[in-house]
Write a protein that binds this DNA or RNA. Structure first.
Lengths: 173, 173
DNA sequence: ATGTAAATTCTGTATAAACAGAAATATTCC
DNA sequence: GGAATATTTCTGTTTATACAGAATTTACAT
């Protein structure tokens, strides 16, 4: 697949940012490619377009499935797997947010709960106890807030975001 | 500094999660230590407590300063630098959120703006153009929402979070 | 100035992640 | 069943990061 200049830049940028987002370059490049392509692509076409090893593509596709970002589809008269991603940026953001929360946030909330319930907890300095408890409480609040937001439909969430700081007035009133 | 069992677990957990959060283990361990200690520590004490090389501590402290998570203080009659972090979980979350947004989000928003304004943009498939534009618009909305939230004081933000999904009613009404 | 403590930078090593290419496995068609 | 195609797993290499320990620099005291 021949890439236009903008597509190419897009894919390269996505790949570079990937490392900051905790996913490797090839994985994010493949995702970007599928997003730009807007149609299901077979692994070989991804391989050719990005110029990486076929095995690398295979593993990366697996990881993207683990993130819930791509799905396999089949085309009539073609035995190859084809891969596609949502063209809908909301769906994407939803999947990414959900998965990152699960991987980066929830384990620590669980851990902190465990700490606080541990028999050793009382042996801690009073100040340290306070800070740990406050951290847990804070993270629990953020966590359930996140879950709530994930439940909202795009339109509502968009309104919430557009509201921005003006929400203060609603709360006070 | 002798660590209690919970403190030790806390620091180790923080260190492990660090890699998922994009910072290395020593960096996050040091931060956790300062957070638990609740008082300014000199580099040597950090070195001894964590059992890592002095040079490693030095570099990690630099990185934590880059994140705006620690500050240097001096104690009377002691020439050594001492390092401390906010004991306030809100302050912490604020600093982390702000910095992550800056590093992981804003560059892509800038990049997408650049794409859309590029002379090559028109050569793109109509569908791809739409998706890129939608991505930009979405990320811009999220970005300014983030900025707004960062401006709110903790109490208000807490109320917003506690409100959760019930915010829908406020919006409709 | 010279010595001493503190902090940083430099250099090499170890570790882990990413990746290519080969080999092996699975799938579908005849 | 066997050939052809598609996919995954395995193995070794490369590359990037983390780190220790040494060397250097900086800051301060006398």
């Amino acid at each position: 697949m021949k890439l236009t200049p903008v597509s190419e830049r897009f894919i390269l940028h996505w790949g570079e940012m990937g490392s900051r987002w905790g996913v490797n370059r090839t994985v994010s490049q493949i995702h970007a490619l599928l997003y730009i392509a807007g149609r299901p692509l077979p692994a070989d076409e991804i391989t050719d377009t990005l110029g990486v090893a076929r095995s690398n593509v295979s593993n990366s596709l697996k990881e993207l499935q683990g993130w819930g970002l791509i799905s396999v589809v089949h085309l009539m008269g073609d035995r190859r797997d084809h891969f596609e991603t949502t063209g809908d940026v909301w769906g994407l953001a939803h999947a990414i947010f959900k998965e990152r929360k699960k991987r980066e946030f929830d384990p620590t909330v669980d851990f902190l709960r465990d700490c606080v319930n541990s028999p050793d907890y009382g042996k801690e300095e009073k100040d340290a106890q306070k800070r740990i408890a406050a951290t847990l409480q804070f993270m629990e609040t953020v966590s359930s807030w996140g879950d709530e937001l994930l439940k909202l439909d795009p339109e509502t969430l968009m309104k919430v975001m557009k509201l921005g700081a003006k929400i203060q007035k609603l709360i006070r009133g």
